[in-house]
């Protein structure tokens, strides 16, 4: 090899290796889960322990939870997200959708790493909405220096039209900035509905259309989506069936942003 060319290549390699921000562009691996916990553990007599055991077994970095109670009478005034976070050593945050039985009902996020910011947004409730819903958006910093926007949501069970309006609002709240984004949730919509086909068209659906509901599942209504679409790669995906602790199956994925 030409001597000058050889040294030029070496120099370019060094320059490339010491580019500022190189860590930000290196692949960002994550293990993520979304789980509707069926009215904060109605099937576990409101004990968080079976949920903690399941989550601990799969070791996700972040979890989106739906149907979470905060100090609601039916679940003995427990703070489900904090108790589950305490059992796992994870950082919890709760997002209120509605006031209910003296407490609050909504969604939550658990993270292995501290949550550096969060905000809960009420989703629009057009005519025909049966229950007000919300999205909880968190920002999480990882030891690698990379940051993730991670959201949990639960769309209304009324109609595809209502859910499409809610999905459109999700996009307006979530699709801004440079950070990679994951949203997990119970969308109450099957894959062919417009809330998914049109509402989530800018997103990469993580995993396939395997059914997720009920515990021995027959239809898919629980999802994980990643953004930007072209940078989000699914490494593995699993629907965890027959847990016996909810009427939904948790969905679990390993992904990377490249």
């Amino acid at each position: 090899m030409n001597y000058k060319l050889y040294h030029g290549i070496i120099l370019l390699c060094w320059l490339f290796a010491f580019q500022p921000g190189i860590a930000q562009t290196s692949p960002f691996h994550l293990k993520i889960m979304s789980f509707n916990v069926c009215r904060s553990g109605e099937l576990t007599q409101y004990s968080v322990t079976p949920f903690a055991d399941l989550i601990r077994h799969y070791q996700p970095d972040v979890v989106a939870l739906q149907e979470v109670d905060y100090k609601v009478a039916r679940s003995n005034n427990m703070d489900f997200a904090t108790e589950l976070g305490a059992a796992l050593g994870m950082f919890p945050v709760f997002g209120k959708a509605i006031s209910y039985q003296g407490g609050e009902y909504g969604i939550a996020v658990l993270s292995k790493y501290p949550i550096s910011a969060f905000q809960t947004y009420a989703l629009p409730a057009p005519d025909g909405t049966k229950e007000e819903r919300a999205v909880l958006i968190t920002e999480i910093g990882f030891p690698s220096g990379q940051n993730l926007k991670f959201a949990s949501t639960h769309l209304d069970h009324s109609s595809d039209k209502v859910r499409s309006v809610m999905a459109s609002a999700l996009n307006s709240y979530l699709l801004e900035g440079e950070m990679p984004i994951i949203v997990g949730g119970d969308f109450n919509a099957e894959p062919e509905e417009s809330a998914i086909v049109d509402g989530m068209q800018q997103w990469k659906q993580i995993g396939d259309d395997s059914p997720t509901h009920p515990d021995n599942p027959i239809k898919k209504i629980d999802y994980l989506f990643g953004y930007p679409k072209e940078k989000c790669v699914t490494i593995s995906y699993q629907v965890i069936k027959k847990t016996g602790i909810s009427d939904h199956c948790p969905v679990l994925a390993e992904i990377k942003f490249q």
Binding site: G85, A86, G89, F91, K112, S116
Partner: peptide
């Protein structure tokens, strides 16, 4: 994984937040 803030919050009936 040990997280004293969240454990204490659960025992004391508080909502935990964390400033990393």
């Amino acid at each position: 994984q040990l997280n004293p803030t969240v454990s204490i919050a659960a025992q004391a009936g508080k909502v935990p937040l964390f400033n990393k």
